[in-house]
């Protein structure tokens, strides 16, 4: 389903009650089955945007549409994968994955079939009756992805899903996500602060800037998958985006110091 974000602004209130502009005139469209990433520094309104798409919050101005219909509440066609997994600690792996199917009143045998299918898809066979706290971070996130996929959404909203995983697990999960996405095509809207991650996964990347949060640029990533992060063209693109983003966030003066910063990062 196509996603349409038109002139969306959102005002939040600070602790003191002062209005803050979290998003200003955000515009973009996401095509059916596109992998669309939103990157930007923290505080640029990425999560706010995702909350609006999920239907947890309403925009102050503008409209968000899915398949031509305005988003007013959460719905099964838009499943959410959270950074901290948000698994129900009191439910086992199976019960967590089944949660949405139950709410959807899917017949019992069909529930069982779907749960089995998605447990296989995310490779969690043998862990069906474990509680989330008995699983590693990567496994929890796989449960969370299976739970989201089980309700058969046309759009998958992912809010920094791999940010709290270690690097090896993160790269593995990125590959797994791509495999799943290629096997069962869906529109994915993927929020991340990692430019490398966005370049590895996405068809297009919206780059957001902070204060107020807005979409500064939308880039098309034209490399074929799987993408090699050591490919010089990929490296060059990532470097360009990082430099550009740094200029946006810290101003041009800091950008001159950027090479030094890079050396520190490498060391």
């Amino acid at each position: 389903m196509q996603v349409d974000v038109a002139n969306v602004s959102k005002v939040h209130f600070s602790m003191k009650g002062e209005p803050l502009l979290a998003l200003l005139d955000v515009n973009f469209q996401v095509e059916k089955n596109e992998f669309f990433s939103i990157v930007g520094p923290s505080g640029c309104g990425k999560t706010t945007l995702l909350n609006l798409l999920a239907g947890f919050e309403q925009p102050t101005r503008g409209e968000l549409k899915v398949g031509g219909r305005v988003i007013t509440a959460p719905g099964w066609e838009r499943a959410v994968v959270f950074q901290e997994y948000a698994l129900f600690p009191w439910y086992t792996v199976v019960q967590n994955i089944r949660y949405g199917l139950r709410r959807k009143r899917v017949p019992e045998p069909e529930q069982r079939r779907l749960v089995d299918h998605y447990i296989g898809l995310v490779g969690l066979g043998g862990f069906e009756s474990r509680y989330p706290r008995e699983l590693s971070g990567g496994m929890r996130q796989r449960v969370s992805i299976a739970r989201a996929l089980a309700v058969n959404p046309s759009i998958l909203l992912m809010d920094e899903p791999f940010a709290s995983l270690d690097i090896q697990t993160r790269e593995y999960m990125q590959d797994e996500l791509l495999k799943i996405w290629q096997r069962e095509p869906k529109t994915v809207i993927f929020v991340t602060h990692s430019i490398d991650e966005a370049i590895k996964l996405s068809d297009r990347i919206a780059i957001m800037g902070p204060r107020p949060g807005r979409v500064e640029e939308i880039m098309i990533v034209e490399f074929g998958r799987p993408r090699d992060p050591t490919n010089p063209a990929v490296v060059r693109l990532a470097a360009e985006v990082k430099l550009w983003l740094r200029q946006q966030v810290f101003g041009s003066k800091s950008a001159e110091d950027a090479p030094h910063a890079d050396q520190h990062m490498a060391g």
């Binding site: 909350n51 999920a54 239907g55 947890f56 509440a73 959460p74 719905g75 099964w76 838009r78 499943a79 959410v80 959270f82 901290e84 948000a86 698994l87 129900f88 009191w90 949660y99 949405g100 709410r103 959807k104 739970r147 309700v151």
Partner: peptide, 29 residues
């Protein structure tokens, strides 16, 4: 209750009564 769990419940289609029984009550136990 973890607000993310409430959001997860809502996005998976829990109605208010279901949200209370499956999320708020076990979280409060």
């Amino acid at each position: 209750v973890d607000p993310y769990l409430v959001q997860a419940g809502l996005s998976l289609g829990a109605r208010p009564r279901e949200l209370f029984l499956t999320v708020v009550l076990p979280a409060a136990l």
